[in-house]
Amino acid sequence: MKLIDLAALDHEERSTADIINSVCDELGFDYASYATLNPMKGDVQGYANYPDEWKIHYGSHGFHHFDPTIYQSVLSIAPVDWGRFNHDEKFNAVFRDANDFGITPRGLTVPVRGPYGECGLLNVTRDCSDAEWEKMKKHVMGDLQMAAVHAHDTVMQSGVLAKALYLPSLSTREKEILQWVAEGKSQQDIGDILSISHRTVEVHMRSGREKLGALTTAQAIGRAIGFGLIAPG
């Protein structure tokens, strides 16, 4: 499982960076970050405006393997105040260190769920008093919901994810077979065309579906066309 800093990949994600920065500037947070779990590989990708030293420390200590602000927050439909993790050993392990980098454990995570069940997380922190925090939450929660969905859609539509993960993973055979399916050929036909058994076709198709995170072949074809991996039939 890798931790991928989307900012280092491509210029397109700059808009995600813009959203993250404007959340801090306009809503009054110290730091903000966006993260999403890749459903197939379990990688965590994201963008954060935390100090670079903290990002490096976080990644090199493997906090993304167990940070409850990621793994617990995906289990909620409502924004999760990190106060809920007060007694969580894993949370305390991450934020004891965070404190050394001037990052407060006072924060919250807004979970976003997409139509395929994929989840994105917008995290914000602010070092302030209890009263100030409660007041702030009431005031900005609606804006945070919108910012979260905006950040999520930007990452999902930017193709950064696809470039980082989806594209390299399909084999030539898998692409070839999906292309023939898109042309309307049956599994048996494809086996005959490629001179392989229909069972082999099935194995490649299953693998292709899994790599695309698709439940059905029809869905896999849709996604493969969407990513430009195959041409419409």
Partner: peptide, 9 residues
């Protein structure tokens, strides 16, 4: 009340 606190309208 739960929805409202979550910023849901």
């Amino acid at each position: 009340e739960y929805a409202k606190a979550a910023g849901v309208l």
